[in-house]
Nucleic acid binder design. Structure first.
Lengths: 211, 211
DNA sequence: CGAATGACGAAATATGAAAAACGTCACCCG
DNA sequence: CGGGTGACGTTTTTCATATTTCGTCATTCG
């Protein structure tokens, strides 16, 4: 409901820079505390009073930086997704040909999802909430990732590595085909059930679709 | 917990056939009533007393045929999955080359999932329960389907239509790659979000992975 | 004057008793 | 004797209420 990135109005230009900086630092401190508490006690079991107490401030003060508890959750999700995006960007713009990079990217994504699910259930709880409620941050993240993948596909086509098709469509198809390895819900349900092929084989299969 | 297919002991061989037949008819009647009521009022809103009243029998009598309400649900799921399997079997053993049959099969599956989700929310509720609790019937159904797909892949390889690889692995990869179109949870979440490519394109992409 | 807070109404959630539903069993009936 | 049932103990769900938590605002503080 409320907007996540509410910017304070900037009445004067002279001190606004410093003011904005100190504000940003408070935001970061709150997110750090929230992340730690959420991971320890779980999202639903942690209330804003807990976060405020942990920081030695009043609950009301939290609301000067975040419109709601859900906003904190979303900002945290944004931060985590940003980290994932950063990693993906490095992998996808790293060394190797297009196939190598895409393969590494997907398997990395899979690995990350798997580990989060197994060892950090509290984080997984937050992920599930985010997906169920179809937050825009998730959608935006997927779009960002798709942009990266599209670029790699484009390079692969230019290098003669992939066949010549619409890079956007091809990238989207590739991501759909590997969704079983990247989507948390899929990973959660499909890992347990008996599968014949390995993640590596699925990636190879999807890569072949590009060629 | 309880077993779904509890068979009555067969003390004598002469009348056991008829006895078993009349028993089977009761099972079917119960399932028919349950299906109608579940679809109308929803699974959680319907109790066994409702089903019994609908059939003009006592609730206790239901338990002579099913170990629990969940067993009815599972048997119903089995019956629906059987119908889906039947359809898939016809499509996959129908006319056309391997690609045509696989394409038709996946798009058909997608269509079915989509319609169920949109127009029969009560059924979708039951599907979600079945998936969340990871019922063996679902797993068995997927295995059955995979067997069918494997056979088509094998034929495609024999006809020189697909490249020569392990049919089982290839079929499993193909199903993973098209999971975004067949898995109810995926369809539910991914349809709404803005996608660049169409279902048809995803299928073509996956088919290309076989070639 | 802006940063921060205690007090407060609204909304969500925990609690616990009452009701309903589940599932079992001794018993009845054709 | 097998098909069927009413009565009954146990578990789950419902629902009203008490408590917590959320989020706002007038007021205080530096």
């Amino acid at each position: 409901m409320k907007n996540v990135t509410r910017k304070s109005k900037v009445p004067a230009m002279d001190a606004s820079g410093a003011s904005e900086a100190v504000r940003q630092e408070n935001v970061t401190r709150i997110l750090d505390a929230a992340e730690r508490l959420f991971k320890h006690y779980g999202y639903t079991k942690t209330n804003v009073a807990d976060i405020a107490r942990d920081l030695g401030m009043s609950p009301a003060n939290i609301y000067r930086f975040f419109g709601s508890k859900a906003d904190i959750h979303q900002a945290l999700a944004q931060r985590m997704l940003d980290a994932g995006y950063q990693l993906a960007a490095e992998t996808l713009s790293g060394p190797g040909n297009a196939s190598d990079r895409l393969r590494k990217h997907i398997l990395q994504q899979f690995q990350m999802t798997l580990e989060t699910m197994i060892s950090e259930q509290k984080v997984h709880e937050m992920v599930v909430i985010a997906i169920e409620q179809q937050w825009p941050v998730i959608d935006a993240h997927l779009r960002r990732l798709r942009t990266l993948v599209t670029e790699v596909v484009r390079e692969g086509i230019a290098a003669g590595e992939f066949r010549d098709t619409d890079p956007e469509v091809a990238a989207d198809c590739f991501m759909s085909a590997t969704a079983a390895l990247c989507h948390p819900q899929m990973v959660a349900t499909c890992v347990s059930e008996f599968k014949i092929c390995t993640p590596e084989q699925v990636v190879e299969f999807a890569l072949r679709g590009l060629k």
